[in-house]
Design a protein around this nucleic acid. Structure first.
Length: 582
RNA sequence: GAUCCCGUAGCUCAGCCGGAUAGAGCACCUGCCUUCUAAGCAGGGGGUCGCAGGUUCGAAUCCUGCCGGGGUCGCCA
């Protein structure tokens, strides 16, 4: 995407090149000092360093060339050699009136994005929230920026927790047929467990294994047998999978999060034996303490990097192995340029090991492998977020809480109370989700953040609900304009408030590029909040639906329309829906 | 012990591939609703950017050391 800053950069780069200076120094950005200028170029300072001359002299030469360009209303040198730039109002108005450019489909790169990572049989909890929200935002952003994107939920469905569940069921004796080695099948079509059963089974199994080493041993053996293909266990596993998937689709659905693929660790099971064979044959995988490992330490390492464990000493594989096999699968299926893993930062070392092993074995094709971690969500006490009872809060309950809080806020604000109950409930749901998402995304990905629902759901300040309301207000103005039969026209730029709003609208491509480069949704949050603020100022200073001046009115309606479209677009990238009215 | 992340206004956080007076939201103070939903708008007070060195014309930003908080460090995910 190319925006106004990119357009100005091209002009400045040409000027630098014409002066025999490095073109890259012509980078133009929105000014740090909006009181002094709209845009700035700092390139004369490093250029002077290189050429060992006076930066102001160089800046003068660049400025002289830029002054010849009609787009600039003002070109000035300030301080040690900053080049300050203002664009003409005509140029601003002309560009903001154009349809926004979207991506560059011809040069589409391919991305596989791995996020979500819920475990089968375990209810989704707050720990899954960040991966879902951040991952979903990034998949939307990369698509908008022209990438060919495939998202994969990558279920946790092949590890020890499966063995734990299986052995727990064996102990309870509720489904003996699956454990009868003499049974020849077919196994029942009806699942022996419901979603509720699973939610009860897993904590019990987990606790039993923690308390009793013998039970843990059983679970390990069951895991290994499942992976080795024992029919009864596989049949049981298929039931777990089917029951869980229904629940997971519903939960992600309630967040507005979707995936192209519902693959998981188990889906690459057939790829594991050949992978192990290949790595062993090439001497990359070696036996150590009864396990099969791949050494991934590298000479320049500052830290100790433990080897990747390909096959455990009990014969089972763990998620390092399935992650490697998943790379093989993705290279075969999508052959991506990039694979992003949106997973808790605490797993960083794990991914470092997997990536090194993949590169060492050359199985990653042309794909760059990148782990983009995130911090934890803490309670107001600064410790990881828990329920009042100290347990893990289920995602379902969290969403219900947010919706209830949103409903309370609507009531306090006197909003939506005369609407039909279904619409009112739908608005509360959208506002609740927006509160959760915006709060999460507006913090920098890697930092931990404090979960404070009371603060997140406020209609005042930097919140999701505030932004939704801002958009709804513009929708309301435009609706009224339609009712009055008022026409929209291309915007004009005359006042400071209009100028600031238009500059912000034109800065969208830079925000989207920066967010992509840094894989940082908070850049988009910052952008959209500033956009809403600049609209507010415009709105406060100018009456839009003027009765007397049709031309002015049409231009302002036009500007409202473009602002709404941009607001809607960016909130859409954040996964936030805008109610029709509030 | 090693390594990674974090430490910025009373609170919650941006900014961090060096650049002009360090920003936002909340809270606090002063103005502004007989016109499009007062969601706010205009303005004000409030900061040794954890500490100490270093590099640089210039450091919140880069380097080194230290202090404080959190994570991770071979058969869980």
């Amino acid at each position: 995407m190319t925006g106004l800053a990119a357009e100005l950069s091209a002009l400045a780069k040409a000027a630098f090149a014409a002066e025999g200076l490095p073109e890259a120094l012509g980078q133009v950005q929105a000014s740090d000092r909006p009181d002094l200028a709209q845009f700035q170029c700092n390139g004369a300072l490093p250029a002077a360093k290189l050429a060992k001359t006076n930066p102001r002299v160089l800046a003068e030469r660049i400025a002289a060339r830029l002054k010849a360009q009609a787009i600039f209303a003002r070109v000035e040198i300030a301080g040690p050699g900053f080049i300050n730039l203002d664009v003409t109002d005509g140029a601003l108005a002309e560009r903001v009136g154009r349809a926004p450019e979207t991506g560059a489909p011809g040069t589409a790169k391919t991305l596989v994005i791995d996020f979500g990572g819920p475990n089968i049989a375990k209810p989704m909890h707050v720990g899954h929230l960040r991966s879902a929200i951040i991952g979903d935002c990034l998949q939307r952003l990369f698509r908008a920026n022209g990438w060919q994107v495939t998202s994969d939920v990558h279920l946790g469905d092949w590890g020890l927790q499966m063995g734990q569940l299986i052995s727990e069921i064996e102990h309870r004796g509720t489904a003996p047929v699956y454990f009868d080695a003499a049974f020849k099948g077919p196994y029942p079509e009806q699942s022996p467990v419901t979603m509720e059963d699973l939610e009860d089974l897993y904590p019990a199994a987990s606790a039993a294994c923690k308390a009793d080493p013998a039970r843990l041993e059983e679970a390990r053996r069951a895991t290994a047998e499942l992976q080795a293909g024992r029919p009864g266990y596989r049949a049981l596993w298929r039931h777990f999978f089917a029951v869980s998937e229904r629940g997971l689709v519903r939960e992600y659905g309630s967040l507005g999060v979707t995936f192209d693929l519902w693959k998981g660790e188990a889906s690459v099971d057939p790829l594991i034996p050949p992978l192990i064979h290949d790595l062993t044959a090439r001497g990359l995988a070696v036996e150590s303490d009864g396990a099969l490992i791949v050494a991934v330490a590298e000479p320049g390492d500052k830290k100790e990097v433990p080897p990747l464990i390909l096959v455990k000493s009990d014969g089972a594989v763990n998620y390092a192995t399935t992650d490697l096999a998943t790379i093989v699968d993705r290279v075969a299926e999508q052959d991506p340029d990039l694979i992003l893993y949106i997973v808790d930062q605490r797993q960083h070392l794990h991914f470092e090991q997997v990536f090194r092993a993949a590169r060492k074995a050359g199985i990653n094709g042309k794909a760059v492998l990148e782990h983009d971690g995130f911090g934890t969500m803490n309670g107001t006490d600064g410790k990881p977020f828990k329920t009042r009872e100290g347990g893990v809060m289920k995602l379902y309950d969290l969403i219900a809480m947010a919706t209830a809080e949103a409903d309370k806020r609507l009531a306090e604000q006197g909003l939506a109370n005369e609407y039909p109950p279904e619409e009112r409930a739908d608005i509360a749901r959208k506002v609740g989700i927006a509160a959760l998402k915006f709060a999460d995304l507006s913090n920098y990905r890697l930092t931990d953040y404090v979960f404070d629902l009371e603060r997140f759901t406020r209609f005042e300040g930097k919140t999701g609900p505030y932004l939704q309301y801002a958009a709804v207000r513009i929708q309301s103005i435009l609706r009224k304009a339609r009712e009055e039969g008022y026409m929209a026209a291309a915007p004009v730029v005359r006042s400071a408030a209009e100028r600031a709003l238009v500059l912000q609208l034109l800065a969208l491509p830079e925000a989207m590029d920066a967010a992509e480069d840094k894989r940082a949704p908070n850049v988009l949050c910052e952008y959209v909040f500033e956009l809403a603020q600049k609209f507010s100022r415009f709105y406060a200073e100018h009456h839009i639906l003027s009765k007397s001046d049709a031309e002015l009115r049409a231009a302002r309606i036009g500007l409202c329309g473009i602002t709404l479209a941009t607001l809607t677009r960016v909130l859409g990238l954040l996964g936030i829906e805008i109610p029709a009215r509030m």
